[in-house]
Write a protein that binds this DNA or RNA. Structure first.
Lengths: 143, 143
DNA sequence: ATTAAAATATGACAAAAGTCATATTTAAGA
DNA sequence: TCTTAAATATGACTTTTGTCATATTTTAAT
């Protein structure tokens, strides 16, 4: 479903959403442990996310990663797009070009609408909304 | 979602379901073209499926691949399990061990129930049922 | 029996995904 | 201004996935 890299990236962003702020930045080494991701690999992913504008960073002493007010408006789909490239979810399950609602492939109706609803969720829910859910104790972070 | 190999395998099995029979076997080269899969690679996949009991084969002249009455009772999940190994779909979206309905990860409710319904479909619908849908013109095969 | 047509087995190779290490750049604080 | 702490850039390396080729085995038909 998600690549390992995307899973790691999502976990990192959610952790930052809850635990970091403009004034309280988090270093790679303090992020890698709690979300259970190899530090060196995570560093690379964070740099991609940073370049992609999904997260913010500050170099040097007292530096680290954090989410700005803008960052927190991105969605899970934005994260996946930066890490894995676009169109991981927008195509036919069998990658058939001619598959559509009029001439569906055998898996089309099996997948849709449950699938399209899922994809919609990836596109709609912001990071901010997730962190609210976490703070309200509705979902849990041990990552 | 599915690996390329699984997509290829699913396409091949569906094609065989509609176009082959015990008495009308289909050779790799006549299967590869219509489903648009590299022949040499498909050959390997068909051998795995055959070893896994998902499809049937006969060597030698007039040989080829086909689906028996038993083969046609398998599901898409069976195909994926043979090709990609088990447990591609049974774990948490973020691969968290402690994620469950009581203590869901942030993506848990987002995914479920749409996701679990999808997985259920993979497990329940038999190849036979798909080929009936195809013959009834409800879904289409240009693969 | 011999031949030819098919799947099967095996393995080489390429491309992509995942992992790790190190040198460079930036910026805070003494 | 110097030192030190952080991200950033780069690239080597490994593993997995995808691809292709070839030799072997089986079996139908002559």
């Amino acid at each position: 479903m998600f690549s390992n890299s995307s899973k790691y990236a999502i976990k990192a962003v959610l952790f930052l959403a809850v635990n970091s702020s403009e004034s309280h930045r988090i270093m790679v080494k303090d992020l890698a442990a709690p979300i259970n991701v190899p530090q060196a690999y995570l560093a690379k992913l964070l740099q991609e996310l940073s370049r992609g504008g999904i997260i913010s960073s500050k170099k040097g002493p007292k530096g680290g990663f954090f989410l700005s007010k803008e960052n927190v408006q991105y969605t899970l789909m934005d994260i996946v797009n930066v890490i894995d490239g676009n169109d991981k979810f927008n195509s036919c399950l069998l990658s058939l070009e001619k598959c559509n609602a009029d001439k569906p492939c055998p898996l089309h109706d099996l997948a849709s609408p449950s699938r399209s609803k899922f994809i919609q969720s990836l596109n709609q829910n912001t990071i901010d909304e997730f962190s609210i859910q976490i703070e309200q104790g509705k979902v849990f972070l041990p990552l």
